[in-house]
């Protein structure tokens, strides 16, 4: 398949990225060739194959419900580009 403008713009939006026109052309070409290559998987019959999301079959790794101490707020905020009143600051969110 080829990646057209509509699809690349949709992927930009989902990914919260904005490409320049030049980057967009390159991305279209690169993604198209990668996806065409990936389509090679259609040669495989996976009709009865279960999807494998984890590389092993372990299950049930739990933590006991015990409250511990939280982090110093200064440390949580120390890398924040903008902060105010102990909070991260962002442009206003609109409803």
């Amino acid at each position: 398949m080829t990646i057209d403008n509509k699809l690349i713009e949709y992927l930009e939006e989902l990914s919260r990225l904005r490409l320049t026109e030049e980057e967009k052309e390159k991305a279209k070409a690169d993604l198209s060739s990668i996806i065409n290559y990936v389509d090679k998987l259609n040669e495989l019959d996976t009709e009865n194959t279960e999807a494998m999301s984890h590389p092993f079959d372990y299950t049930n790794n739990f933590r006991k419900d015990e409250a511990g101490s939280s982090f110093d707020r200064e440390l949580i905020l120390m890398n924040a580009p903008q902060k105010k009143n102990g909070c991260f600051r962002v442009p206003k969110t609109v409803e």
């Binding site: 105010k84 009143n85 102990g86 909070c87 600051r89 962002v90 442009p91 206003k92 969110t93």
Partner: peptide, 11 residues
């Protein structure tokens, strides 16, 4: 919402 600066604070 922070009305003073018209921005949003995140907790």
């Amino acid at each position: 919402h922070d009305p003073w600066e018209d921005s949003t604070l995140v907790d």
